[in-house]
Amino acid sequence: MKFYGKVAAMLALMALAGCQSADKKSLSSAAVDPEMDRCGASEYQQYVGKPLTAIESLRFDHAVRAIPYHSAVTMDFNLNRINFMGDKQGNISLVYCG
């Protein structure tokens, strides 16, 4: 394929990629790998942006760790533990297993 053919193919692929659309609902309902979500962190994604203290009244089936901004934590990796990572303002910035 000549140079112009490669450029045309790349432009066509870029144009097709631009035609895709996704709304927030379809992004949040994306498939979750059950092996990487053993702790059920996907069920608590709605707490991102809320204060870290918002999880104090919740009951969990798995171990939980609330991690304030710049706090020391152990480096043990536990896929059955839910981690709530805090930011500078004390809000939850990330919910993940580990």
Rank of each mutant, 00 (worst) to 15 (best):
K2I: 05
K2H: 08
K2L: 05
F3N: 08
Y4G: 09
G5H: 09
G5V: 00
K6G: 08
K6M: 04
K6E: 07
K6R: 15
K6P: 03
V7H: 09
V7W: 13
V7A: 14
V7K: 13
A8H: 05
A9P: 01
M10T: 01
L11I: 05
L11R: 09
A12M: 11
M14I: 08
L16N: 01
L16F: 08
L16K: 02
A17I: 14
A17M: 13
G18N: 01
C19D: 02
S21T: 06
A22W: 11
D23N: 15
K24R: 14
K24S: 13
K25A: 15
S26V: 11
L27M: 07
S28C: 08
S29W: 07
A30W: 02
A30H: 06
A31D: 15
V32P: 08
D33N: 13
D33G: 05
D33S: 01
P34I: 01
P34L: 05
P34H: 01
P34C: 03
P34E: 01
E35Q: 13
E35D: 12
M36G: 10
R38K: 09
R38M: 11
C39I: 04
G40R: 11
G40V: 08
A41C: 05
A41G: 04
A41V: 03
A41R: 00
A41M: 02
S42Q: 02
E43H: 03
E43T: 02
E43I: 06
E43F: 07
Y44M: 04
Q46A: 12
Q46S: 13
Y47T: 13
Y47M: 03
V48F: 02
V48D: 01
K50H: 12
P51T: 00
P51G: 07
P51R: 04
L52N: 04
T53R: 15
A54S: 05
A54H: 06
A54Y: 15
I55W: 05
E56W: 02
E56D: 11
S57V: 08
S57A: 12
L58K: 13
L58C: 10
L58D: 14
F60D: 12
H62D: 06
H62Q: 13
A63P: 04
R65P: 09
A66G: 14
I67K: 08
I67M: 11
I67Q: 09
I67E: 11
I67P: 07
P68N: 04
P68Q: 10
Y69T: 12
H70A: 10
H70M: 15
H70N: 10
S71N: 12
S71A: 13
S71M: 07
A72D: 14
A72M: 06
V73T: 11
V73P: 05
V73H: 04
V73E: 08
T74V: 13
F77V: 08
N78C: 05
N78K: 15
N78R: 10
L79F: 10
L79P: 14
N80R: 00
R81P: 08
R81N: 04
I82S: 04
N83A: 07
F84E: 03
F84C: 03
G86I: 09
G86A: 07
D87G: 11
D87M: 12
K88T: 06
K88M: 14
K88P: 03
Q89T: 12
G90Y: 00
N91G: 08
N91I: 02
I92P: 03
L94N: 12
L94Q: 14
V95P: 00
V95T: 01
V95K: 00
V95D: 00
V95R: 08
V95A: 00
Y96M: 06
Y96G: 14
C97E: 10
G98L: 10
